[in-house]
């Protein structure tokens, strides 16, 4: 149990996917303009990350490795994620329309989100079991959520500021991201100190 909590905290705070490992930068820069879209996108990412991790872990462990086809990992995973996102979209649309209206628009964006493919591969590289993998995926998603929500607040300020002409738009956004990333360095060592 303690191991799971430490994985969760390490994934969400210390090894933050966006701010420390540079995964999922596109939605981080593109969809973080206001709080509402940042939250919607992040919740969709958390959901797909956990689901994709559970499915790809089983496929890798019970299907690909025993048959000696582990080299197909990349091709199979990206296909599974794409199919999964489509299925979730159809299922939500039919069964829970309210949730579909809130998350639906973000789902197609997730297929090509490197954070989702990244987390599924990282779990296997680290040799995590199923429970640990799903917890790690949830933590990574949570870290994405944190970064998005904080950054949407930062951006609502920078949108109205007047930086030097060449810095307008994306460059100033990146520089504020740099400062946010720097602040996440404050979490360094927190897991080791709390859990030994």
């Amino acid at each position: 149990m303690i191991k799971l909590v430490s994985i969760l905290m390490a994934a969400a705070l210390v090894n933050n996917y966006v701010l420390r490992q540079f995964l999922g930068i596109c939605p981080f820069l593109g969809v973080s303009k206001d709080l509402k879209s940042a939250t919607g996108m992040s919740v969709a990412v958390i959901f797909v990350m956990c689901l994709a991790t559970a499915v790809t872990w089983c496929i890798q462990t019970y299907l690909l490795v025993p048959r000696g086809m582990a080299y197909l990992q990349t091709v199979v995973f990206i296909l599974v994620i794409a199919a999964l996102v489509q299925l979730v979209e159809i299922a939500l649309k039919k069964n829970i329309p309210a949730l579909y209206r809130a998350l639906g628009v973000y789902l197609p964006l997730i297929t090509t989100n490197c954070a989702v493919l990244g987390v599924t591969i990282a779990n296997l590289d680290k040799g995590y079991g199923l429970a640990e993998s799903v917890v790690n995926a949830f933590g990574s998603g949570l870290g994405f959520f944190l970064a998005m929500v904080i950054f949407s607040g930062v951006r609502s300020q920078t949108e109205h500021s007047e930086p030097p002409k060449p810095f307008e738009g994306l460059p100033i956004t990146l520089i504020s991201a740099s400062i946010l990333s720097l602040s996440f360095f404050g979490f360094n060592g927190i897991v080791e100190n709390l859990f030994g």
Binding site: S181, L182, F185
Partner: peptide, 12 residues
Amino acid sequence: APGGFIVFGCLI
């Protein structure tokens, strides 16, 4: 990580 963001911002 922060250095990556800042160098990229300045290059753009």
